[in-house]
Design a protein around this nucleic acid. Structure first.
Lengths: 246, 246
DNA sequence: CAACCCCGATATATCCGATAAATGAACGAT
DNA sequence: ATCGTTCATTTATCGGATATATCGGGGTTG
């Protein structure tokens, strides 16, 4: 065939995933969330296979995975079509990552932080009630890493993530724990905005207050302390958005 | 082989989905969350195809969708294995439905309601700030349906769902709106427990208080009113659980 | 003229058989 | 005993054939 010399068919074969299907999944996912198919129709299965230089099997499996994540819908004769953004599964870590890594994602980051305002304070309150000794050790370990990062002995971002993830786990509720990956992804992305604006040095003292309240089994205080923490983040992003708009 | 006459290979061909792949997806999803593969290893691709009387293509696509939802993981030689429950995407409506519809799901329902305590009051607060005129009409429509249901002129459950979904939409935040399907699913399941215990007649007055606070653009009151509402649900479920345990 | 039915075109859905690649385990050499 | 090789198993990938669903056009009919 003509394209089989793999001149450069979008190169799904590189290193985008552990195999061709995941490579195509990633390429298509990014293309969809960046709106490439808002102006042109989504290709048919045969066209996709030819464009990316892969077999129909690989194509179909990638499309099925995107369907499972709510980004696509396939019907005979009608073809495969991109679903409206309202039906995308925003709590799928792949989808969230694609969305946050694209350009113009500050709005989305602000909206996700608005969600964190609801989730994390309540998670802290639950943690204050149900955290095991080991949960508490993990939270303290995260805090210790933040202090170490202050002295340049650890990575600030990783330490921050470790702390928040530990609190979510300590809630003892799988639905709260589910936000682990998402918060981690969002934090990694958000640093591109927040760190650019302030020196940050994310208030270790405020984080310590959360840990202390959880250790003291004081849900109300834990909730307020965490709310303060996330509130600062939101304010930082609001400022960023406002600055960009002005 | 013995099974090729399709005596009754689990019958994915019936009406479980709009095609074979979705039928198999549903059958396998239910089987996984009900723990069938905790005692026996997950079948290989070839075995699955034979057991359900479908081709390997259909099998592979269903497995890929389950992988996208976090339930499975496939590697050459190792085979396909069920992932630990902690990596299942609980915010996928299929996964949540499979989990809630299985036996012994009261615990999960309680935990999801604990999440609603975080989400819905905050959504109500956001709605009080940002709801459009149309959002408000939708909320009022939901309330009207609840009143009608009181008089036996509408379905209580559908009306309740319509109200909560309208509030989530009115938040103007896609992450909150994402909970629509999940709350709907959870409510439909929860009625099997809550309705069994009380006459319910879910406090229309309490719902009206939420609507009024949103209409008055009073976030704090909207938040507290919604918190009261969900708090009642949790209490109801706690009672149910306690009764079952005792 | 309008309603209905039938047929063809098109895209996904399904089945199939062959080959490639990855990987863990058994086996053998040093 | 350790290390490397071979082998068996399972998923990954390929591509061709056929089935099925569905939209739209066109012809027939009341």
């Amino acid at each position: 065939m003509s394209t089989s010399l793999s001149s450069q068919p979008d190169d799904v074969r590189s290193g985008l995933g552990r195999n061709l299907t995941y490579g195509l999944l990633d390429a298509l996912g990014r293309a969809i969330v960046t709106g490439r198919y808002e102006t042109e129709p989504f290709p048919t299965e045969a066209e996709l296979a030819k464009q990316h230089g892969v077999s129909r099997s690989v194509t179909r499996e990638a499309v099925k995975m995107l369907t499972a994540k709510g980004l696509l819908s396939a019907r005979p004769r009608q073809g495969t079509v991109v679903q409206p953004a309202s039906s995308w599964n925003l709590f799928d870590t792949d989808v969230l990552r694609w969305l946050l890594e694209r350009q113009f994602s500050v709005d989305l980051l602000r909206q996700f932080s608005q969600l964190r305002i609801a989730i994390e304070p309540e998670a802290a309150a639950l943690a204050a009630q149900f955290a095991t000794a080991q949960d508490l050790r993990q939270i303290s370990a995260g805090l210790a890493r933040m202090e170490a990062a202050e002295r340049g002995q650890d990575d600030t971002l990783d330490a921050d993530i470790a702390f928040h993830v530990a609190v979510l786990r300590a809630s003892g509720n799988p639905f709260y724990a589910q936000f682990r990956e998402m918060v981690a992804t969002a934090l990694r992305t958000s640093i591109r905005f927040t760190n650019r604006i302030k020196g940050r040095t994310a208030s270790v003292a405020d984080h310590a207050a959360v840990r202390d309240a959880i250790a003291a089994k004081d849900p109300a205080t834990a909730r307020t302390a965490m709310r303060t923490l996330i509130g600062d983040v939101v304010e930082l992003i609001e400022t960023s958005t406002g600055a960009a708009a002005a």
